[in-house]
């Protein structure tokens, strides 16, 4: 993980593009994975539910953006906070056609932004699936999600309607690029302080992970040593019994 941190923190002047890390969050089936594939340039219409982690790098103007795509299912969402320390900003994808789950989406959203490692960063909300008939327009989504409450929790937020799925032969929905541009510029505003914060958080996390790994190794090695001792003792016991049986009466 350390080399990852190093790559992330080359200053703006050294590299041609500014490296930035953005995370996708949102309920399962919101369209995160599809959105990422569209941003990459080739929409994947055949995605499988993400119960894990994927990362992709896409250059956007003067930014080299590394996207984290994580699963959004209820049982898996809990893992999101492990990544907040490493990101400059996030994109919350919501299924505009799934009115029944908007309450659930709102809860997930606020849980994320209230997390100390997320608070103060920038958030782009993409009201996805606008291609569907039953989709709700962006300003209504904003109301239902009570986005105005975000003011005190994030550096900046914005909501845009879009559709990750492109119709045959049609170009990518321009709203997506517009959204990414907006997010990059927001991040740029606090870039230096963000970097410092991320550097510290990631270093702490790496230390923690290293300690945990070493602890596990120690436990396993101890157990192995104990097992070997036991096995040895068994062997010796057996030999003793054998020689006792062989000695004359």
């Amino acid at each position: 993980m350390l080399s990852f941190i190093r790559n992330l923190f080359s200053s703006k002047n050294e590299k041609k593009e500014t490296p930035v890390t953005v995370m996708f969050i949102g309920l399962d089936n919101a369209g995160k994975t599809t959105m990422l594939s569209t941003i990459q340039g080739e929409t994947d219409t055949n995605t499988t539910p993400t119960i894990g982690f994927d990362k992709k790098r896409v250059v956007h103007g003067k930014y080299n953006i590394t996207y984290f795509d994580l699963g959004g299912s209820k049982g898996f969402r809990g893992i999101w906070d492990r990544y907040y320390g490493s990101i400059h900003g996030a994109i919350f994808v919501v299924d505009s056609a799934d009115e029944n789950r908007l309450e659930e989406a709102k809860q997930a959203l606020f849980e994320s932004v209230r997390h100390p490692k997320f608070t103060g960063k920038s958030l782009l909300i993409l009201a996805n699936k606008q291609d569907k008939k039953e989709s709700i327009p962006a300003h209504e989504i904003a109301q239902k999600l009570e986005l105005d409450k975000l003011k005190s929790l994030v550096h900046r937020y914005n909501i845009l309607p879009c559709s990750a799925i492109q119709a045959q032969n049609k170009p990518q929905d321009p709203q997506i690029k517009k959204g990414v541009t907006w997010l990059s510029e927001s991040i740029d505003e606090q870039f230096e302080s963000l970097n410092k914060r991320i550097e510290k958080d990631m270093r702490d996390e790496a230390e923690q992970a290293k300690l945990e790994r070493e602890e596990k190794r120690r436990i396993v090695a101890e157990r192995k040593a104990k097992e070997e001792e036991l096995a040895k003792a068994e062997e010796e016991k057996k030999l003793k019994e054998q020689s006792a049986a062989q000695s004359p009466e």
């Binding site: 993400t50 994927d54 490493s86 996390e205 945990e212 790994r213």
Partner: peptide
């Protein structure tokens, strides 16, 4: 500790 895997894509099933 799968969350610390950052250098490749992973999935748990």
């Amino acid at each position: 500790g799968l969350h610390s895997i950052r250098d490749r894509t992973w999935q748990i099933q």
